[in-house]
Every structure is written in structure tokens, then in C-alpha cells.
């Protein structure tokens, strides 16, 4: 059954034109592995990436991605991966407001993206945020400032061809009222929502959860093959990647 492994089902479900990808997960089914896969894919084929890491230090990503066959340290040295270590964000604000530090952060991201653009690099560039819930914590719970920051990141993707934004959010920490602040607006700006959830039938030994992919893109080039907009399949996370398969196709 290896033909359906290696992220093939995920790539089939994700169309190439999606500019804003929102990955939703919960405690029972973390979706960090989706970010790792997307990061690996972003760096493959000469593309560049900026990783805004609030959840983990660089070594964590380095070790995980190395097992998947992608050397982050090398990419970082060669300038294709720009790693923003934001675990202490916004440490050095010097009395400025949170909006100012987010504006500074955006400035740094835009410089990286501009540098990539002026080099005449036609390859893909991916801005990845891991994760937005922690950015909200860093912003002292001000969802509005976080949304402003996100909006500017989204404008990058529309200004530049081949630029995409990937955002991870833990959807289970928002109740239905809290969700209005950050989760719902995020779903509105998304072209593609990837949602990880535990199996509805309970725990299983060889299935770790289910993944739903919803394509919301308005433009025709943002449609995946066969015009299907909603995909649902199971996943199993492995050391060197993940397996994706349709329910019932594997025992």
C-alpha cells in the first residue's frame, strides 16, 4: 500500500494554487507532522521558507526533518530557510506596544521575502507560523493585533506569485464564543483548511487520526484535481513521514 503513502493523498487533496493554508489540530491529534511535511516540501525543489517558530526551538525541527531526509541546518546556512526563534517574543519591546513589535516582526519577514524576490528567485516561498495560538498568547491575548499581523502576511502572498502562508492553530482551545475572535476570521481568510481530528470510532493501533482537507479557493486555478473540494482520509505518523489512506483501505 506504499503507493498511497508519502503524502501523496495529501498533495492530491492540496491544490498548488492555495495561498493561505490553515492547519487546525487538537490535543488528541496534533498536526505538527503536517507542518513538517509542508516545510519539507517547501524546501524541496529550490524553494525558500521562513519559519516563525513559537512552539519549538530550531534543534527540534532540525532533528525531525533530518529523519525525513531534509537537512535544515544546511538549508539555513545556504540562506533558503530563515528561522525566526520567537519563543521569547516579544522579549525586547522597550516599552513599545504589542502592535509595534508585531509590525517589527512583519518588517523582518518582509525583508526576507523581498530579498528572495530581488534575487530573481522564481521558486516558491513559504511563510510558516507555528503556531498562531502561541502568538496570541505572546500578544497578551489581543486577537485583533494578531489578525492585523496575519493580514499583512496574507498581503505578501497576493503581491508575490508563488508565495504561500501556512498557519497552525489549536482549534480545541477556542470555545464557540472565543472562536469569534481568532479562529473564525482565520477560517475566512484561508484558501485551504487542513483539520486533524482523532478517529470518531476511538483509538486504533495503526491509525492515528483523520485528516479533512477543505478547499475554499475562489479561483479556478485553486481547484484540485477532479474538482473535489472536500477530502477526508486517515493518517498514520511514522518516524520518517506519514501515511495517508482512505478509511477502510488498510488493516
Amino acid at each position: 500500500m506504499e503507493e498511497s503513502g508519502g503524502g501523496d493523498l495529501l498533495s492530491e487533496a492540496m491544490c498548488s494554487g492555495a495561498r493561505v493554508v490553515v492547519v487546525e489540530d487538537c490535543v488528541e491529534a496534533p498536526a505538527a507532522f503536517v507542518l513538517h511535511l509542508l516545510l519539507k516540501r517547501a524546501l524541496a525543489g529550490g524553494g525558500g521558507a521562513a519559519l516563525l517558530a513559537l512552539a519549538q526551538p530550531f534543534f527540534h525541527y532540525d532533528r525531525v526533518l533530518r529523519k525525513m531526509g531534509c537537512n535544515l541546518s544546511m538549508h539555513r546556512k545556504s540562506g533558503r530557510l530563515h528561522f525566526f526563534d520567537l519563543q521569547a517574543f516579544p522579549g525586547a519591546t522597550r516599552g513599545g506596544s504589542i502592535a509595534d513589535s508585531l509590525a517589527q516582526l512583519y518588517l523582518a519577514v518582509q525583508r526576507v521575502v523581498d530579498a528572495n524576490r530581488t534575487e530573481g528567485n522564481a521558486a516558491r516561498f513559504t511563510v510558516m507560523i507555528d503556531d498562531i495560538s502561541l502568538l496570541e498568547v505572546a500578544a497578551c491575548g489581543s486577537a485583533n493585533d494578531v489578525l492585523d499581523f496575519l493580514h499583512y502576511c496574507v498581503t505578501l502572498t497576493s503581491e508575490m506569485q508563488n508565495c504561500s502562508l501556512v498557519v497552525l492553530i489549536h482549534e480545541d482551545i477556542y470555545s464557540s464564543e472565543d472562536g469569534v475572535e481568532l479562529l473564525l476570521p482565520l477560517r475566512y481568510i484561508a484558501d485551504l483548511v487542513i483539520k486533524a481530528a482523532p478517529l470518531s470510532t476511538g483509538l486504533a493501533a495503526d491509525v492515528h487520526g483523520q485528516l479533512s482537507v477543505v478547499n475554499k479557493g475562489m479561483l479556478s486555478e485553486q481547484r484540485p484535481a477532479k474538482g473535489q473540494k472536500v477530502w477526508n482520509f486517515h493518517f498514520k505518523v511514522k518516524e520518517n513521514g506519514a501515511d495517508f489512506f482512505y478509511p477502510g483501505s488498510r488493516h
Partner: peptide
């Protein structure tokens, strides 16, 4: 309820 896929697919078209 994202689990119910057929509804969503319908509502998007």
C-alpha cells in the same frame, strides 16, 4: 461538523 463531508461538498457548490 467537518466529519460530514457530503454536506460540505454540497454546500460549497
Amino acid at each position: 461538523r467537518i466529519g460530514n463531508i457530503s454536506f460540505l461538498e454540497h454546500n460549497y457548490s
